[in-house]
Design a protein around this nucleic acid. Structure first.
Length: 662
RNA sequence: GCCGGCGUAGCUCAGUGGAAGAGCGAGGGUCUCAUAAUCCCUAGGCCGUGGGUUCGAUUCCCCCCGCCGGCACCA
């Protein structure tokens, strides 16, 4: 490898080990792998990092439940993730685990730099913490996590704060100077408005957690999960000695849109505080939705990659993910669309063109690439289209416009099919003139295949290698230099390789049935190290019950007695201007009429609530919400992932207003 | 409520100030080299509603309706 190759560094998220990979994680990783292969073919010295984020309370608990040590637990989880990527032929050049020693050193080093530069100070933090999301959430004690709907815990602890507030201006300046830093545009605007709204300092260490990287000389402090996890991108390429390897700063951090803030705000701020170079770009892609709902374990609509790869092959999955969705936007996943793409684009398109071309060369040209003769306008037209496609596809890949790039490659394939249909090489005789004309046609078709194969290789590594061999090309298609790719480089006389079916057609119903059966089977057998809290619920139609949230900590009756709940009757109800979720209620609780705000406006019509009897927490400290005083709390069940409120009530028997609930 | 985006053929979406597009699906036809593949034709969609600017708007501006995202908000 020449040392003067330009370097290119890209990363997938460092996945949290609270479960096994589903198709969403696979999507991120496949996109990265595609970029990596593409950049290699353009002559870059590329490193791609992926890995696992293994610290935190959740891991502590999951390990405990599984009856193993944390180290043992995360080792098994990391192995699972690694194994899947290997099955998908995704070789992350660096697989970083946040429990790696070199990573601990990097985190400690980064902290030291931030501290020496005056951006770290000691303080105390009290807040509600969601152990499932590994984040403090902005809710009151006893409330569920607004994101996942599961219980939160009250945590008070001394810790170190990072002076994020000091970086509002520097970050805004950076964004202004680097307009492409955050992609796509819509995410950039969101981050901008978030930062413009002011930044609060960030707690970056914990004393309540044992399973984490220790803060040197400050035990029992360990690093907060995001300070820890983000730094993995740096540890993977040398940590404190990053300059020696020359890969930092990263060219692209590829992330899901839900973690854009950590990557586009916190991470650059940490690096600025430490005086280190910032990554060049953070690219947030969309979600793969199932029936327009976010795929998540708690909803139970998870799709895993293995059944798909088993039935249709790895390339089919890669092709579908990159072709079906405009990169950056949300996309829909469905088995139906997947199989449709497979049959119409891969089997009938690329597979069939390869097959028919090879068969004709075999039959008419002795199995060798024929010599093209004099060109006719239709031959030249196809050549021109192919040459144009090379330029355009490369431009599109550069912008991560995978769906358009594939569309273009496939329109080239369609043009070759059309060319063959109109030229009809099979009708020609065995006269010299006809042989020559046929040779031109078949050479042209084969050359389209060669060009399309080279261009599609980053997306379809497995099958394009087969076409490459079929065309009798030497070397591996991955070693082709895309910058040197031109129409006309196919050498006549090259003997073809063995013909093989690339993408056998498959009956849609049968394919879907097989994939769903495998998926259901997999759901029934949770991984031995997967703790109940992280267990997957079944896909729609499955039989097993959805995973229950972990129970809250046990309390004594005296704790419960502190809460005074009484039956109240709603007297009036109205919406509050400027609040989507809030209703202003007046409630008769027997002794008095209280004004209470409740976050139920999206699910209850104010008029229909009047006269309704509800359970009210009456001894809660008053508080203003949207400028409206709220004196108490209406009790409601929180249902589903979106936390839809369902009012607790007394539908069957009448109760006296003011009666205490015990 | 604030900020931003979207609403185009059955489905997924592209697109432009000047005669409405692609892929898939559906209907009809064709060829036979090929993976019952290919290719050709057809489908008839007030380009969300109502205004405005313009010689002319799907494309520019405003209102409204619907959907989505971020923030605020859920005691």
């Amino acid at each position: 490898m020449p040392a003067n190759k330009p370097k290119f560094y890209l990363t997938t998220p460092i996945y949290y080990t609270n479960g096994l990979p589903h198709i969403g994680h696979t999507y991120s990783t496949i996109v990265c792998d595609t970029i990596r292969r593409y950049k290699r073919m353009r002559g870059y010295d590329v490193i791609m990092t992926t890995g696992t984020d293994e610290h935190g309370v959740n891991v502590e608990r999951s390990a405990k439940k599984a009856g193993v040590s944390e180290a043992e637990f995360v080792a098994k989880m990391a192995a699972e993730w690694k194994a899947l990527w290997e099955e998908l032929s995704i070789q992350g050049d660096e697989f970083i685990r946040t429990t790696d020693l070199k990573h601990a050193h990097t985190v400690q080093w980064l902290f030291k730099l931030c501290r020496e530069n005056g951006f770290v100070y000691p303080g105390h933090y009290t807040g509600q913490y969601c152990i499932y999301d590994n984040a403090y959430v902005d809710v009151k004690a006893g409330e569920n996590c607004p994101d996942c709907g599961r219980p939160t815990e009250t945590v008070t602890e001394p810790n170190y704060f990072f002076k994020l507030s000091a970086f509002q201006k520097p970050l805004l300046d950076w964004y202004a100077k680097h307009p492409d830093f955050i992609q796509p545009e819509s995410r950039r605007n969101e981050v901008l408005s978030f930062v413009e709204g002011g930044l609060r300092d960030l707690s970056i260490t914990r004393t309540t957690i044992r399973w984490g990287i220790p803060v040197p000389g400050e035990e029992p402090h360990v690093f907060y999960v995001w300070f820890d996890a983000l730094t993995a991108y740096l540890s993977a390429v040398g940590g404190p000695n990053y300059e020696k390897q020359g890969f930092w700063p990263a060219d692209i951090h590829l992330v899901g849109k839900e973690i854009i803030r950590f990557h586009a705000v916190y991470w650059p701020a940490f690096l600025m505080a430490a005086g280190l170079p910032l990554p060049k770009q953070v690219w947030a892609h969309g979600w793969l939705l199932m029936d327009s709902a976010k795929m998540s374990k708690s909803v139970g609509n998870v799709v895993r990659p293995r059944p798909i790869v088993h039935v249709l092959g790895m390339d089919a999955l890669r092709y579908y993910l990159l072709r079906e969705t405009v990169f950056g936007q949300d996309g829909n996943f469905s088995y139906d669309a997947l199989v449709t793409r497979y049959n119409s684009d891969l089997a009938n398109g690329l597979g069939n063109l390869a097959s028919r071309t090879a068969a004709m060369v075999e039959k008419n040209c002795g199995g060798k690439v024929p010599q093209p003769g004099a060109l006719q306008p239709q031959d030249e037209a196809l050549a021109k289209q192919a040459q144009a496609a090379i330029c355009e596809v490369l431009e599109l890949y550069e912008k991560l416009g995978f769906s358009r790039a594939l569309e273009l490659i496939w329109s080239l394939i369609a043009a070759a099919d059309k060319y063959l249909a109109s030229e009809q090489p099979w009708t020609l005789s065995s006269s010299d003139a006809d042989n020559q004309r046929r040779g031109t046609m078949l050479w042209t078709a084969a050359e389209v295949l060669r060009v399309a194969t080279s261009l599609a290789h980053p997306v379809l590594p497995e099958s394009t290698a087969k076409v490459w061999a079929l065309l009798g090309q030497t070397g591996h298609v991955s070693s082709q230099e895309l910058d040197a790719l031109r129409w006309g480089q196919l050498k006549p006389g090259t003997p073809l390789g063995k013909s093989q079916s690339l993408f056998p057609r498959i009956e849609k119903a049968e394919a879907i049935e097989r994939m769903e059966a495998m998926e259901n089977e997999a759901q029934k057998q949770p991984s031995p190290v997967t703790a109940p809290a992280a267990a997957s619920a079944p896909v729609a139609g499955g039989a097993a019950a959805a995973a229950a949230p972990a129970p809250a900590e046990k309390i004594g009756i005296e704790d419960f007695a502190k809460v005074e709940m009484r039956v109240g009757q709603i007297k009036t109800a109205e919406r509050i201007v400027g609040a989507d979720k809030l209703l202003k209620l007046t409630v008769d609780i027997g002794t008095e009429i209280r004004q209470i705000c409740a976050g139920i406006a999206q699910f209850y019509e104010p008029e229909k609530l009047i006269g309704r009897k509800v359970a009210v927490v009456v001894n809660l400290a008053p508080r203003k919400l949207r400028g409206v005083e709220s004196n108490g709390m209406i009790v409601a069940a929180s249902v589903g992932p979106e936390g839809r409120p369902v009012l607790a009530g007394f539908p069957d028997e009448d109760v006296e207003i003011g009666a205490r609930l015990k």
